[in-house]
Design a protein around this nucleic acid. Sequence first.
DNA 1: ATTAGCACTCTATCTTAATGAGTGCTAACA
DNA 2: TGTTAGCACTCATTAAGATAGAGTGCTAAT
Lengths: 348, 348
Amino acid sequence: MKLNDRKLKILQAIIHSYITSAEPVGSRAISKKYELGVSPATIRNEMADLEELGFLTQPYTSAGRIPSDKAYRLYVNGLLQRERKIMKEKEGMKKLLAQEIGEIEKLLQNSAKILSKITNYTSLAIAPQVKESKLKHIQLVPVDETKILVVIVTESGLVKNAILRVDNNLTTNHLNRISNFLNSKLKGHNIANLRNEIEDNLIKEMYKFKNTIDSIIPLVNQTLDSHKGDSLYSEGVTNIFDFPEYSDIEKAKAFLSFIENRDSVLDMLINTGFNDIEIRIGEENNYEEIKDCSLITATYRFNGKTIGKIGVIGPTRMEYSKVISVVRSLALVLSEIADGDKYKIYLK
Amino acid sequence: MKLNDRKLKILQAIIHSYITSAEPVGSRAISKKYELGVSPATIRNEMADLEELGFLTQPYTSAGRIPSDKAYRLYVNGLLQRERKIMKEKEGMKKLLAQEIGEIEKLLQNSAKILSKITNYTSLAIAPQVKESKLKHIQLVPVDETKILVVIVTESGLVKNAILRVDNNLTTNHLNRISNFLNSKLKGHNIANLRNEIEDNLIKEMYKFKNTIDSIIPLVNQTLDSHKGDSLYSEGVTNIFDFPEYSDIEKAKAFLSFIENRDSVLDMLINTGFNDIEIRIGEENNYEEIKDCSLITATYRFNGKTIGKIGVIGPTRMEYSKVISVVRSLALVLSEIADGDKYKIYLK
DNA sequence: ATTAGCACTCTATCTTAATGAGTGCTAACA
DNA sequence: TGTTAGCACTCATTAAGATAGAGTGCTAAT
């Protein structure tokens, strides 16, 4: 059986109707609302075919039809093929974000807020994974007699702090010398490899501060690990209550619990591919808890290099068209801001 | 009418029963489960009195009784009066927290996790309000030609970063000189007053760097403001689903939306008093959305000075006895950790 | 002052019936 | 051969009615 033009149109109509109403769609409703020029009976026949082809399902014998994941997939692929117009929203987003001073974390949190506000779904955002970043600057700062603060700035714009306890009292001068030294040796290196770097080069040259330097690297690694969970931002989780598919409290709970568990969400986001835009529909998701959700993520880049992701999660009945364009636009804006040239935008 | 001993016992029994079952309590059930040595009929009479006194309510004419806020208040005051034994849990908590390296933010997040895990309610924690802290150290760190990083360490243990854009290229040396200068002038001063301090003293002395210094203070203030929302941590928000009073989806939504709105929660926590332990029962809360919740908060201190709060929020039918002792213990542990002497605990 | 007994109240639950949206099939039609 | 009108049939949802049961308040006896 072939998926001819009329079937496609009918399927599209059903998807559209279901996305807006969340109710199973009947043949009469379709023939009324969408001008297809055929009678409900004809539509019924086509619908039976579409069901056989796996694009529609029926919750029970004589109810209307509901689009399957396969149908959404078809629909979405169609959307993707069409050249997406650059959103007008983009400028607005930039303005909203431009007000923000500070670091990338703040920027992402605001992005998430904007995303959930515009889409009315739940939004997610992850910061660059610090372990995959290159070191831009490292600085030791005295705090008091027994503590020094290690500040790490990555090329991706992250700033991380770690507190280090030391036995011997190091003067500001000492710390500056060590900082300078570490910088000259480590700048531009991948943070995940710090340990190796250090062992080969440093210890002999800075014999005097061997102990201090020795303890910095493990601490830094440890800190970066413990900060992993911080890099996730979500907003609008309670938007889920606006969708009738979550009026079942058990379902709402399952969804919210999933989102509340930062680790699994972080995993999920990292493990979806890093294409420009990634879409997981229903069963395409690897996590049991969200098999009836769709996830749309986009990657933002810096110097052409992937550094993080933003996304939206909601029921499979999602306003794909809108969400795809919003997520994509915002990711572009973020990339532009993250990239050096436009950095000014959000610093002034 | 007097609240004699028997009435008190019966009230206590009703509260206890309702806390565990969430079902209106009948006279027969009380007489069976609790050994009061009187018949259901007697209990009925007493219950009628207790209702008249405002300690009990009836959802409808012939249902069992439910404790009122007033009843919980009485019950809780009784709990508070009794000298609370130092919890055994305290040691366990310390161990859990001791694994943590890093700064106070991380510590609080973990405290919130522990709190919600132990109590099965929703937990809240706020970090010290940076504006009320005194400056311990300020350091300017070069990032690249056009950006410097301002690192602020407060006496309460907070570390905050702000990125500052500069036009003139300042060398590490310059920055160190400025840092030293700022430190010598500002250390120990209240952060909220930074601006005044600076204008009186600094500018003439460091004429050369006037521009840089001029721009630092507003930026710092701005950053501290924008970080305000970061200082709230909540965990276990989905625990609310375990309580039958929130099986109504609208109620669950209202609660979760309230918690999701960081600003209002932050306000709420700041505006409850700063006694050792604060308890708001039902209508005692100033926020409409949580008029059927109870909030239990405790203050943790540093050098005897109030710096932050942790707390638990849940239905008025709360396990007050347990929660009070857990929250109080954890606050004590936090105070001990925050205080210098014991700082080692969580750094090693 | 306490308690047993009993009529009464009101919710929750179960049953049954009615409603109606939507289908699938058949037969007629262009 | 594709399209459509008509109609019987299915099944969830809703409403109405009936029943059960928990719990009370009152009265009268102890």
